[in-house]
Design a protein around this nucleic acid. Structure first.
Lengths: 117, 117
DNA sequence: CCGCTTGTCAACCATCTGGTTGAGAAGCCG
DNA sequence: CGGCTTCTCAACCAGATGGTTGACAAGCGG
């Protein structure tokens, strides 16, 4: 799974990882601090953080033995741009479809009016 | 992977599936029409469509033997809302941090000014 | 220096995933 | 009816994923 976008979506497909992102949006935290609320091992959380890091969603810095983790908000833009593009196209298509349907309805009504007389 | 959001993110973590979404944003298409550009089997594409369907990104309707597939744009909102929430928090946090830093810089400058006199 | 804390690496395991092939259901059309 | 097209289901396989435990490197602090 080489491409950036796939990595970002895959990273956020896990509830624990989304939870970590939510937690980090409130401020940086070390690995043990992040792991503390969960029942799984610290190693498991460390793995999750690696996935988030590979996706560019998070960066780690050194601070003695500790590794404060930091949320990188910019990567969200990549996703948002992708999503917005296709949503917009799809929505515009519906608007066109609605317009066509409205047009057809109008024509039908006019035909019926003509037939009624 | 029960929850909706996980399913949506997981569905879009695959390049082929994102490609299918892109294709469908231009208009509905049957399974074979969707499968045509790819080298993989129709069954593989059928599986991809099932994943997209389970995530609520797509709906299938019956039309003789054919199954026209339709993009459901609304589900995107779920993602966008999630993303925007944490991005906004993270960005605001930086603005606050920037403000604090600016304040500190200002105080330092004033202290230096005081010391300089 | 020794021990405790913090975090990662490695090996292992069960399950999920994306692909395959083969078979078959459903439905149009000659 | 019989055949062709369209699509899904089932079984299988290789590789990824999320978890475990155990070992150990790095670094603070008594």
């Amino acid at each position: 799974m080489a491409d950036e976008l796939s990595k970002v979506f895959a990273a956020l497909a896990d509830p624990t990882r989304r939870d970590i992102v939510a937690r980090l949006s409130a401020g940086d935290a070390t690995v043990t601090q992040i792991a503390e609320p969960y029942e799984v091992s610290v190693q498991a959380i460390s793995k999750h953080l690696r996935v988030l890091e590979d996706a560019g969603l998070v960066t780690k810095t050194k601070e003695a033995q500790r590794r404060p983790v930091h949320l990188e908000a910019e990567v969200f833009d990549l996703m948002t741009r992708w999503i917005e593009r296709y949503r917009r196209e799809a929505e515009q298509r519906y608007q066109r479809l609605d317009a066509v349907l409205a047009e057809l309805t109008k024509e039908n009504e006019e035909n019926e009016k003509g037939q009624a007389s």
